[in-house]
Nucleic acid binder design. Sequence first.
DNA 1: TTCGTATTACAGCCTCATTA
DNA 2: TAATGAGGCTGTAATACGAA
Length: 205
Amino acid sequence: MCQIPDINLEDLGEVKLKCYQEYLKEKLKLLFPNTDVRTEWNAMRDERALNIYSPRVDVAVGPFATHQRHEFEYNEMFRIDSIRNFVERLITYNRDNLYLYGDFVEAATYDNAIYQNLNARCFMAIEIENEVSRKHLMGGAINASALGRLGVVIPWTDDKLKAFVRLVRYLHYLKEADKNTFNTTNLLIVTKEQIHTALADIIRG
DNA sequence: TTCGTATTACAGCCTCATTA
DNA sequence: TAATGAGGCTGTAATACGAA
């Protein structure tokens, strides 16, 4: 377990992934003081009897819809200024990242992103991806998007950022070509530096 | 409470195909 | 031919769960 009260932007490159996970949880608790924030959240633990795949989300913001839907609560959370500002920042960063390699994919607007996955299992599902294969990236992206009202993927390195953008472009191409695909409208690609900056700015007010 | 088992994430190394 | 991207395979660590 890492005990990191705060991390400077210039120190992010030296931080271990697990430490960053804990750091992110603590920061998100400040932004979401009235809800539960967990690391390594086992999304399908209560469905054990169904014998289905049970992914663990790196960082998840509740409330957790394990026994009932929280659609209304999530809608209300988006009305809170600090949360709305934070999400808008993430959507802007996602747009910037998607357009790094051209405008093949049109980035989601605020309304499109927040109303895409109404029956989400948590308010925000964050996956941090470091040294993993593209197949792992695909799994992480799908888990974040499917489980969270907002799915956030944090590529740990520049090449993982590029891989995530290519992945979203690929899924978009499948849709354009009228093939079976996965809707990534609520999936936001945000670097660790960007989410760090957004959190710092919003929490500071 | 302890131990064994199952599951999952993460990490590293390797091979293969493609491209400049 | 070297660099790069992609995927396969394996080992390790962490965690949850059930049985003793």
